[in-house]
Design a protein around this nucleic acid. Structure first.
Lengths: 349, 349
DNA sequence: TAGGCAACTGTAAACGATTACACTTCCCCG
DNA sequence: CGGGGAAGTGTAATCGTTTACAGTTGCCTA
């Protein structure tokens, strides 16, 4: 294996304590000695052993990230944001991704001991109990887009509510009154919040809500297609369709196209997430932009703060603002509009 | 902090050695004693300390992944493949992503000591020298899509050559003779190999190559757009355009659309990578599909093998096959065709 | 000139595990 | 009845660091 501090000390004719001192710039070392040691270190290409250091300092300079079984752009963007913030502060990132069942998550959670200084958990499936039970109490944790209520964890979330609210009001502003909603899975928080935003927006506009205009979906493109077909069969057709995510919006768009319905001429369509494809599909899809990387960055910054304060800081729930992106599919103007910027501090859910 | 093995030993009334034995199932332990220890472990919610264990066993159960500044789907897919294979064998994954300059890469490489058992490097910018100089010789390394020639490293690559070759022959099979190539950056290996495949395919078809039909590009959508404009201005227009990646193909498509040129009616267009957008753009883009996740999986499997054999195994260069995906943009048939499956063992480049 | 303080350095005890080795028992077999 | 081997357990060294503590200088000041 590669050289240890002992060998460096030997070759430089000093004790390991002195080597350690120049390594960490702690305590005084004579200039001449320092020079000799630095030189030896370079000759031997010595690098301190991470694990050994961790053992004594009780810190690993590593942050863990726990992800669900997650596809595509969202995943990479969130990691990008996390890694960026982490590296800026000299931390490494240990990812553990693509988990499905709970036993697996528990195993991974436990395996984190002695490996990370903090943890970001992004998982709709995990409950606060499971977390607390499988982690040392002193380990700082930040929940990312994870539905754990209560003030016991730091948490960062997308402003689903505000985004949906803004989009519906935008559609209404274009003159639409019969606005359908393509719902996401009922157990998904994002979906629930978007639904809430939709309903409240209608309410705020004085438009009466109709059960028939809320169609079931599961966030998949296919469910969007089927929903599109069902919406077309409706007695008074909706004039606008708001899908709770872009995949469904695209599926819906395809169904409309197949049926010969013009978008936005006959029906306006909008999505949520602003995935890259949204810009390219014809017609270009209006959507609610979610700053995914920022989500990651914010979570990591929060975590860094938690680590610094030794987890004794005040817990906080943050919401990351979304942004309306208006394109061809809803026939509106072209300028992006700020959608929301709620920031909810303190511990209430 | 959480309990240590010492506390477990104390509470269970045994020595730490015995606890360690039941932990790792090494050596004999009386049934009654084992029961008592297991119980104590669960009561105390004891989990072995990763760093401490690493120190003595000299293994971390973690694999490092070094990535360049990389966007989107490719990134997440490759990580997915890597993580999948890693977890299957009980390893964790330490990512370090989004590096740009070399000094940074060196720093990260060194920081890996004592943190990982092996390393996957995915970086067009790093040379073999830099790698060897900053890593312990005993550390297994697998290069992923990284242009390091020679037999000194394990390496996995995409079959860029075969994919490009197949696509050009497919276009020719549709009757095209003037096939333009939209090149990628000259310093990029992927781009170079695709260029080589293009040229060789033309040659194999007895079509004479024309300098004018090879247009510069840098893999960006914008450069694709500009290239599209230039191609339209050409005296005898090409009847088909093969872009070295999908982003450029899409840019090109937009340029053609803006100019009122019909695709595939007037000009056929094809790309490379088969990014998700390819399916959705109108007309749907023919492309060469790259199994990105498989790339990651294969790299990790190779790495696991290297770790098992203590890095004393035979080095090997592998190539992952690509697959032709024919869609509307080139006006051909609809059935996917196997493009290539070279596998090149042993050490020559 | 003695005492004290600063600068520099070394010794040794941690950190939390694994594991070689040695030590009891106990049982079995000749 | 004695010797040997297996089973069960403990002691202590070890991994590569950091760091409290103590020791040695040398210089300054009273």
């Amino acid at each position: 294996m590669s050289a240890s501090i002992k060998e460096v000390a030997l070759k430089a004719g000093v004790s390991i304590a002195t080597v350690s001192r120049v390594l960490n710039n702690t305590g005084p070392v004579a200039e001449e000695t320092r020079r000799r040691i630095v030189e030896t270190i370079e000759n031997l290409r010595y690098v301190p052993h991470g694990a050994a250091r961790s053992l004594i300092t009780n810190q690993t300079d590593t942050m863990g990230v726990l992800l669900p079984d997650l596809y595509g752009e969202f995943f990479s963007e969130v990691i990008r944001g996390i890694d960026l913030a982490a590296r800026r502060s000299g931390y490494h990132v240990l990812v553990s991704g693509f988990h499905s069942d709970r036993a697996e998550i528990e195993a991974v959670l436990r395996a984190m001991r002695g490996r990370v200084d903090g943890l970001i958990v992004l998982s709709p499936d995990v409950d606060a109990q499971t977390l607390r039970r499988n982690l040392p109490e002193t380990l700082p944790v930040v929940l990312l887009n994870t539905p754990v209520a209560g003030a016991s964890f730091d948490a960062i979330q997308i402003d689903n509510y505000g985004g949906a609210f803004a989009m519906v009001r935008h559609l209404a502003g274009l003159g639409h009154r019969r606005i359908a909603l393509l719902k996401g899975p009922a157990e998904n928080v994002d979906a629930r919040e978007r639904l809430r935003g939709y309903r409240d927006a209608l309410c705020s506009l004085g438009i009466e809500r109709s059960e028939g205009l809320e169609i079931e979906g599961d966030f998949s493109e296919e469910s969007g297609y089927r929903a599109g077909e069902r919406l077309l069969a409706l007695a008074p057709r909706p004039t606008a369709i708001f899908a709770a995510n872009d995949s469904m919006a695209i599926g819906c768009l395809l169904a409309l196209r197949a049926a010969g319905v013009r978008v936005p001429g006959d029906v306006a369509v909008a999505g949520f997430d602003d995935i890259p494809i949204a810009r390219y599909i014809t017609p270009a899809l209006s959507s609610v932009h979610v700053p995914i990387a920022e989500l990651g960055t914010r979570a990591m910054e929060r975590l860094l703060h938690a680590v610094e304060s030794k987890n004794k800081h005040e817990r906080r729930q943050e919401t990351v603002a979304t942004r309306l992106v208006v394109r061809d599919s809803c026939g509106g103007a072209a300028a992006p509009v700020s959608a929301s910027s709620r920031k909810n501090e303190g511990g209430d859910s």
